[in-house]
Design a protein around this nucleic acid. Structure first.
Length: 570
RNA sequence: GGGUCUGUAGCUCAAUUGGUUAGAGCCGACGGUUCAUACCCGUCUGGUUGGGGGUUCGAGUCCCUCCGGACCUACCA
């Protein structure tokens, strides 16, 4: 048994997340957590809402509520959306929690002692109308390079040139449109990542073999270009206050405090449950044997491989508190939406709350993981979704469970029959299982979710092939014992199929396991030899065919959804 | 502009990291079965691996170039 700490990238607070966010971090982390628990590991899965930064303040302003109240609301909404999708967090915290304030300030103090923080003055656009400093992308104006009038402060969309907002001609606020803006000097703290570059490179290069290329290549590219120091404070009201003379009214940058919230949320988990957070995070307090796995989208990689590790390594180098660095990092590409991107701000695509109104969470979980954006971006289409549900879930799994349980009721009094002896057909399925089950486990351990889903489906399909081979309905006419062997094996396959389905489709898996009365304690992944798996249910055990497991998605539903959501493609 | 990734069957994706004849699922065609939500099982069709050039005994894989897509490019997160 291992101890496995799992975090998924923190969902940002500015709205319920779309399917792309779900598929790229929270859901795979959950599936992994469930699989590892089934394998008997001690798992702690931590997530939280990421609540600071300019977009949160602006979203609150749009909603015409106080930012703290807005975050309260949205935190509850996201927590509830997570519950709807059966995300099995051990704790779902908040980056705005008091624990994170204290811990972030503590890290900052230690980095200061380590000489890794310094003050610098920079020029920033201030909007008098909005009464706020404007991040680069919230300033627009005329491009000094090509005279394009709608250039953003960071980059001109017309000529592609990287810009500094103070160079824009006739700058205006993208928030209010006001031209009443001015350049002000403002003082900020910088994290001296540059002095950590060698440590970081050594660490990243040590993970070339076990991290996805997506992760190491992004990190090394930044290092190759020369890691620059990064401002870790902002001129905002909402956030974690910087405890320093002259920094009144300033807060830490959201990307500085958000990853620290992984730890702070674990502290909150500990205070709620009586757990010991230090044994998970502090290598000087027993966390040495913990395997820490992070899940994130590709846009998050730099922060998780460079900035946050700078915080951790810099703090550890002080020789005091020792914190864990990530061991395994799983980065995902995007789920794309009819050729474009999902977008929270532009409300394009399908969002978690809408998705759950359309179809049960298991349908989404299955489809998104069977088509996870692992190797490259993955296209979402309604037709593929329909296909996944109808073909994989309803026809292959649902029909299997239904056909054998109904037959048992019809011909064997609804109980697991005795009689007969295993023969060549049973030997065939045993061979299949003895190859496929270890492969399935290996895919989960390697966090290869497409392959895990594919193998799961292949095992279900093998069950259908087994029934075709053993054909108990044919033997029943001449040799009831022979038929009993097939029915018994079939019912045990039902139980097994439910057991292996649990990480991906927990709700239906539970229904299946209830139908064949598998006790809660017998649902973990201790697969013995395949012959025993086919004879695990007690003879005489009463089984109950489940209610319809999956409702097929009809063509007219696909048409309706395409019209309802597809119109926003643009 | 720079960097990284990517382009394989009608669709969604594989291919033990340079090694036999490029494989699965879906879709389609045909056959079988009748326990089942008309589902399942089997067979078959389908490819100049984006274009062009190169290295090599051998290239989907490595190099060059062109074309398309995505992401990052440090104050959006």
């Amino acid at each position: 048994m291992s101890r496995i700490l799992i975090t998924s990238a923190l969902p940002y607070i500015n709205g319920v997340k779309h399917l792309g966010n779900l598929a790229g971090s929270m859901l795979p982390a959950d599936v992994y957590a469930r699989a590892m628990r089934l394998l008997g590991h001690d798992v702690l899965y931590i997530c939280a809402t990421d609540e600071h930064g300019t977009p949160a303040e602006l979203a609150a302003q749009d909603a015409d509520v106080d930012v703290a109240a807005y975050c309260d609301q949205m935190h509850e909404a996201q927590k509830s959306a997570g519950e709807d999708f059966k995300l099995s967090y051990d704790y779902f915290g908040r980056s705005s929690a008091p624990s994170n304030h204290a811990l972030t300030q503590d890290f900052a103090a230690k980095l200061e002692e380590a000489g890794l923080i310094e003050e610098r003055v920079s020029k920033q656009i201030y909007s008098n109308a909005d009464q706020r400093y404007l991040p680069d992308r919230y300033v627009e104006g005329t491009c000094p390079n090509c005279d394009f009038e709608g250039a953003r402060g960071d980059q001109c969309d017309n000529c592609g040139k990287l810009l500094d907002p103070i160079d824009l001609i006739d700058p205006y606020s993208a928030v209010s449109g006001s031209k009443d803006v001015e350049v002000r000097e403002t003082r900020h703290l910088y994290l001296r990542q540059s002095v950590m570059a060698d440590d970081l490179r050594k660490w990243v290069e040590g993970h070339k073999a076990d991290w996805p290329p997506l992760a190491t290549s992004i990190a090394l590219k930044w290092l190759d270009e020369g890691l620059r120091d990064r401002a870790i404070t902002r001129d905002l009201k909402w956030g974690i206050p910087v405890l320093r003379d002259g920094f009144e009214g300033k807060v830490f940058y959201v990307w500085f405090d958000a990853p620290i919230a992984y730890i702070a949320a674990t502290q909150d988990w500990a205070s709620e449950t009586g757990g010991d957070w230090e044994s998970w995070w502090r290598t000087d307090k027993g966390a040495d044997d913990v395997q820490y796995v992070q899940f994130m989208g590709k846009d998050n990689v730099a922060f998780h491989t460079l900035s946050f590790p700078t915080t951790i390594i810099g703090t550890n180098n002080q020789g005091g508190d020792q914190y864990k660095l990530v061991d395994n990092l799983k980065a995902f590409n995007w789920v794309t939406w009819y050729g474009g991107k999902f977008s929270t701000s532009q409300k394009r695509g399908v969002f978690m709350d809408q998705a759950i109104d359309i179809a049960p969470s298991d349908y989404w979980r299955w489809h998104l993981m069977a088509n996870a954006p692992e190797g490259s971006d993955a296209a979402f289409t309604w037709e593929e979704f329909q296909n996944s549900v109808n073909s994989d879930l309803a026809n292959v799994l649902g029909n299997f469970v239904n056909r054998i349980t109904k037959y048992t009721v019809g011909k064997f009094d609804g109980v697991v029959p005795s009689g007969g002896e295993a023969g060549e057909h049973e030997a065939w399925i045993e061979q299949e299982l003895s190859e496929r089950l270890p492969a399935l486990i290996a895919h989960y351990e390697a966090r290869e979710f497409r392959k895990a889903a594919e193998q799961t489906r292949a095992i279900w399909a093998a069950g259908n092939e087994y029934l075709t081979r053993s054909a108990p309905w044919t033997h029943y006419k001449t040799d009831v014992d022979q038929a009993a062997v097939g029915v018994r094996a079939g019912l045990n396959l039902v139980a097994l199929f439910g057991i292996i389905a649990q990480p991906l489709i927990p709700d239906v898996a539970a229904k299946i396991l209830d139908a064949v009365s598998v006790p809660e304690g017998n649902r973990s992944w201790n697969f013995g030899n395949a012959a025993d798996l086919l004879n695990a249910l007690p003879h005489g055990l009463a089984i109950t065919p489940p209610e319809l497991l999956f409702t097929k998605i009809e063509d007219d539903q696909v048409t309706e959804w395409t019209q309802r959501f597809g119109g926003e493609t643009a």
